[in-house]
Design a binder for these strands. Structure first.
Lengths: 163, 163
DNA sequence: GTGGGTCATGAACTAGAATGAATGAGCAAG
DNA sequence: CTTGCTCATTCATTCTAGTTCATGACCCAC
């Protein structure tokens, strides 16, 4: 009763899965919170009440969290909660905070970061960092040099595999 | 191997040092925002001012965003912004909103942030990607050139021609 | 020097996020 | 039917997120 989420492992996965086939990820904050209420339930499969969730958030974070306000968020009458409240909700429902945002921008950057993961080569990393702050002309010159060297290494068959 | 001998420490090293010193993995919201200001800069490599960022956020979202408040967030005098403001900041600085939270994803992004900042420059990014797969010797050669050019650009004017 | 631009900082204020207490609907005993 | 409980909903209030305005430092042009 006091810590409703504790006994569940991998609940967030349940959430994403069930959400995919149910409402296809609602686009409003209210819709997302409501989806959480419908999907994340007590062991008895009953929905949590607003007061229950609010109390759990209070006890987990030490800060205040009113059931009324949670209802307002869920029904869309309020749609601009603070960082504090978003953290508490994400923690209770076991979802990443990014769930509450439409993260097209975040997804793009995440993809970019993934691409950067390819740059395992420490030397290449350090090279990129050094190039920061150079003039565009200088970077262009270096790029040309890379092309030349890369072609030469390819023609001589000296290119070795990475990773 | 890639040390030019005399000028051992390059410009990028300054960046990494600055990040490692105080904000290697900033745990506070203020620290994270401050890190963004240091890493994400104008094409001229100057830091954005608070007014600049605030105005850009206003124009991008249509909502209000005051420079004073941004300063308060950056210096830690305010630490509980609303969803609206977090979205605007994330959009401007090209980071996922999760970056502002103590989250798994946020932590990962914070770790990669310095490299991301480096590679936000499209030219530098493409340069790095093309360097992947080159032999260590070739990468070392390129790195040496970067050091030399960076040094020359530092000693002469910033927008100096390199021919 | 003086005037005008940009900047970080601070104080005073406004707007709205968030709370608490009150209301009524619904349900299950007694 | 009534009592007692829990819940969603409403409303009035409090508190703080967020803004506006003012100040001083700094730099550059005149």
């Amino acid at each position: 009763m006091r810590e409703p989420g504790t006994g569940s492992t991998g609940r967030a996965q349940e959430v994403t899965d069930a959400m995919a086939d149910e409402k296809a990820a609602p686009s409003t904050l209210a819709g997302r919170i409501d989806a959480l209420f419908r999907v994340v339930r007590r062991p008895s499969r009953e929905q949590y009440s607003h007061e229950e969730v609010a109390r759990a958030c209070r006890e987990a974070t030490g800060d205040s969290f009113s059931a009324t306000y949670l209802w307002q968020l869920r029904t869309g009458r309020r749609d601009n909660p603070t960082k504090r409240h978003l953290e508490a909700l994400a923690q209770f429902f076991h979802v990443p905070v990014a769930y509450f945002f439409d993260d097209d921008q975040g997804a793009a950057v995440a993809k970019e970061l993934e691409l950067l993961g390819a740059l395992r080569d420490a030397q290449v990393r350090s090279m990129a960092l050094r190039a920061v702050g150079l003039s565009p002309e200088a970077v262009g010159t270096i790029s040309d040099m890379i092309d030349v060297i890369a072609r030469r290494e390819r023609e001589h068959g000296a290119a070795d595999d990475i990773a």
